[in-house]
Nucleic acid binder design. Structure first.
Lengths: 108, 108
DNA sequence: TAAATATATGAACCATTTTTCATATGAAAA
DNA sequence: TTTTCATATGAAAAATGGTTCATATATTTA
């Protein structure tokens, strides 16, 4: 029996999932959206990113089910997927409390 | 107040965390180790990877606290971090049930 | 202590991803 | 119905990361 059917069956999907989060721009966007929905211009301003960069990355996040989009007139509001992203970040917060120092060591 | 102190304070650490998992070789190794500890040669055989590739990737996984290493004579046994990796994969399993098809669509 | 086995590591090459730039689309306002 | 504002997108340039190859280290066995 395989105790890990999903990962072994769908390695590519798992890779894409993690890859989507392995990016400073997208993590910053997720963090900005964590509290409330925002439209593209608001995200640009909050992040200090140019609009094209934000749109490209929102597309990737949406594609992977990590944010949802809703049109309102000429604006597009984005919301984070609270079912996945919220508990995921909490899990990693806990991991970071233990291993963060070691991890950041390698970036110097 | 920042409801997401950890991510906003340590974006680089979070990026590195996800980047560590955004890799086919490392995901395969994690999956192989999910049930029981194995030494490098055993992992090579199970994965069908060459030794150098396995060692490089084990180093990265260990560095980020995702696997632990224990020396036994000339062998080195690696164990997956069950506190983080296990619940993490379960969370993503659930996410995949909903969004997997859409995600994989983009790879064709 | 020489040979064999197990594992680690540095550097180079290759591949993928990100960002930027220019431009297109679409909705609202003038 | 032209202009303006909001957002998306394609392609190219720039940055990043992965795998391989050759070799080093460490432990055991002969």
């Amino acid at each position: 029996m395989d105790s890990c059917k999903t990962l072994s069956a769908l390695p590519q999907a798992y890779k894409l999932f993690f890859n989507t989060l392995a990016n400073d721009s997208r993590l910053k966007i997720i963090n900005i959206l964590r509290n409330k929905s925002k439209n593209v211009s608001e995200i640009c301003k909050a992040a200090g990113f140019e609009q094209s960069l934000v749109s490209h990355n929102l597309k990737i996040l949406e594609y992977h089910g990590m944010v949802f989009m809703e049109k309102k007139g000429k604006f597009r509001y984005y919301t984070v997927n609270k079912n996945t992203i919220q508990p995921l970040l909490e899990l990693i917060d806990a991991h970071m409390k233990k291993y963060c120092c070691k991890i950041l060591e390698g970036t110097r």
